[in-house]
Design a binder for these strands. Structure first.
Lengths: 238, 238
DNA sequence: CATTAAACATACTACTGGGTATGTTGCAAT
DNA sequence: ATTGCAACATACCCAGTAGTATGTTTAATG
């Protein structure tokens, strides 16, 4: 959860001493000060992340302004810039949190199943369900993927973007590896793991476009959609 | 190809006479004046559309500026605003052209195949190939779909957006109908046509995210990818 | 109780980008 | 040849926006 250093290499140079101070004083406090009577962590930042995810999903990175996010928080820019050095920083932190949840769910599913096909099925279903349960965060993740070729980013941000894309590649390789395992144990007959996986992930990721939770939607309903999507990708429509 | 009227209902009211004049004088001339020696139509607007599609694909609707598009054209804003009343107008015209090409290809594929499954397979493959061949236009189409909930549009634009979404819904129903036909003739066993189709279209549309043509890429290679994607969606990976 | 720093809010700056108002040029019909 | 209009280019306006500099309040700490 450490705040990644974006926008480094600015015009303003940091002396070595300043850099050390910067390193020792975390930009985001480890513990919240306010309203700790009930013992809850009261993590103030999750509010910002949630609202930011919502705004970025609805209006896109360029379309959503910092003021938009602040307004929805019932606050002003000051609050956001107290925790994040830039809009890009905020966006990527949402992205990172989304990828974290996704990785968590998929890794758990990787432990299940015996054949490669069964494991892959479980991973797809977990992926889909996580999408439906965290649609705002994952919509931002999808945007971030699309953002890859956004040449107009500053040099320092590009480093972070590459890190994100590396995580993304690793994630995709999780599926490809299990796919190959399925080819070897005979549970998967299809060839060309790369394209097959891209198609399957596309079918699941596409939920970021069309799915919006109905009010009062039950978990069972989401599970049903996730199961249906995963099953179709494995078994086809025959 | 007629330029849809966006931004109507402005503060400036049109008298009835003015409205008639507006209707008689096409905003985009039916024929180009310049360099017609060789008899070619020399449609100046296709240049603008092509470049705009490229810019919107790379930087997104909000990210790409009119000046960006103009710069790539080796021109200035003036040229673009001579043909399009607003940035939104330009975007939707790219979108419309993309959907037109897509519809054309899919409708042609609908005439082939005997069983519902075979027809659906052909439609998916045609869809995928069209994506790969017109990635810029279709990336804009994908963006447009995502744009649906972009609450911040003016009232008049919303009307056009609804028109676009209606076309989109019709397009999706093409696949759902053929899917149901396949269920009836026994060539398709899967249930829940709606979710199944959303998954299949997702797998194909996702190419807008990951696919970028390699230089010197052959048509055969694109066909191979399209065929692979379509086959996987029909037969699964078993 | 004084000090200190976190956690914001306020006010401001500089700049971008959509849109417009107004030229300028060249072809074409009269 | 003159007029008229399409097809642009130039120059400008202004609203919005990322980012900053500077207050102000509150809570923990010595």
């Amino acid at each position: 959860m450490a705040n990644a250093r974006l926008d480094e290499g600015d015009k303003r140079e940091l002396s070595e001493a300043e850099a050390l101070v910067e390193a020792d004083r975390p930009r985001r406090p480890t513990r919240a000060r306010r309203k700790n009577a009930d013992g809850e962590p009261a993590d103030n930042n999750i509010d910002i992340l949630d609202v930011a995810a919502q705004c970025f999903m609805e209006m896109g990175f360029q379309g959503a302004s910092i003021d938009d996010v602040a307004r929805r928080l019932g606050a002003t820019k000051g609050r956001i810039y107290h925790y994040y050095r830039s809009k890009t920083d905020l966006f990527f932190d949402v992205h990172r949190e989304g990828m974290r949840r996704l990785n968590e769910a998929v890794h758990a599913a990787m432990q299940t199943g015996s054949t490669g096909r069964e494991t892959l099925h479980a991973m797809l279903e977990a992926h889909a369900l996580t999408m439906l349960q965290n649609i705002a965060y994952l919509a931002v993740v999808v945007q971030g993927v699309h953002m890859h070729r956004l040449g107009a980013t500053t040099l320092a941000q590009r480093q972070v973007l590459d890190e994100i894309m590396a995580i993304r590649r690793d994630f995709e390789h999780l599926f490809i590896d299990v796919f190959r395992r399925g080819q070897e144990d005979g549970s998967i007959r299809a060839e060309n793991a790369s394209i097959a996986v891209k198609g399957m992930l596309g079918a699941v990721n596409w939920t970021a476009i069309w799915y919006r939770p109905r009010s009062g939607e039950t978990l069972e309903h989401k599970q049903k959609i996730a199961r249906e999507l995963a099953t179709r990708q494995v078994e086809g429509i025959i």
